[in-house]
């Protein structure tokens, strides 16, 4: 479980997060939703130690962020940053190999190679494995990145807006892969998404944020309702119910 207690954060004197308390349970997909500037990415970056925590604590199981060993945490939790700037000369396989770095620090064993192979298969990029990243499309590159953090074999995987720049087909493929990763491999996935409908359809839990606070949390059907659209997103889009879930008509 990821336990967030009294987490506050400001950038340049401007409060981004104020007094966040939340528990992200183990297993399943948790979606962080909210309008732009709600502090979703900052929250994710603080959990993943990409930013230094100013006030409050975050525990990942028994490890406290900022206190525990970096290597140990890297075997427990991985993140896909919003815009990773990888050198494009690498091949997909070389990139995925880096996912094993926290375990072997440069000398991969047979078990490490097996993990890399598995990650490439799970993400369905076998045919791209030997191509260099610069020849791939945005969606393919995204899957290569996720294969890397899958190879890292952590309990928790955090993804910061992985659907940005993906078309409909790309988003669906990626979400179905994440669903499978969570269901079949028991990973806990925390994902920042803009599209409420994606959260409604694929997530097990939704955490809605607004103005640096958590507005609502719970299962998609509990959280996504007319009040959420009105109060959190401040718009009056219509909701319709399909297959036991709610879809926003934008």
């Amino acid at each position: 479980m990821i336990k967030i207690e009294n987490l506050s954060h400001q950038i340049g004197g401007k409060p981004i997060l104020s007094g966040i308390n939340a528990d992200i349970p183990r297993a399943g997909i948790t979606a962080l939703i909210g309008p732009n500037g709600a502090g979703k990415s900052t929250l994710l970056s603080l959990i993943a130690r990409l930013e230094r925590i100013q006030l409050g604590t975050v525990h990942v199981d028994d490890l406290q962020i900022g206190q525990c060993s970096d290597r140990e945490l890297a075997q427990r939790l991985s993140i896909l940053p919003q815009m990773p700037d990888q050198p494009l000369r690498l091949t997909v396989r070389e990139l995925v190999n880096f996912g094993r770095h926290p375990y072997h620090a440069g000398r991969p064993s047979a078990a490490d190679h097996a993990k890399v192979k598995e990650a490439i298969e799970v993400l369905g990029i076998e045919d791209l494995a030997d191509r260099s990243l610069e020849t791939l499309s945005g969606g393919q590159r995204q899957r290569a990145q996720i294969a890397m953090i899958f190879a890292q074999d952590t309990t928790y995987m955090l993804l910061d807006e992985p659907l940005n720049n993906l078309d409909l087909a790309g988003s669906r493929t990626l979400m179905r892969i994440l669903r499978r990763v969570s269901d079949d491999h028991g990973k806990t996935i925390v994902i920042v998404v803009h599209d409420i409908n994606i959260a409604s359809r694929y997530a097990d839990r939704v955490v809605a944020m607004k103005g640096g606070r958590i507005a609502r949390q719970g299962s998609p059907i509990e959280v996504i309702d007319a009040a959420l659209i009105r109060d959190v997103f401040e718009t009056d889009a219509e909701l319709i119910e399909i297959d036991g879930g709610r879809i926003v008509l934008s």
Partner: peptide
């Protein structure tokens, strides 16, 4: 690989 990726890899 970049700062973000380096942090995630420990």
């Amino acid at each position: 690989l970049g700062r973000g990726t380096a942090i995630t890899l420990g």
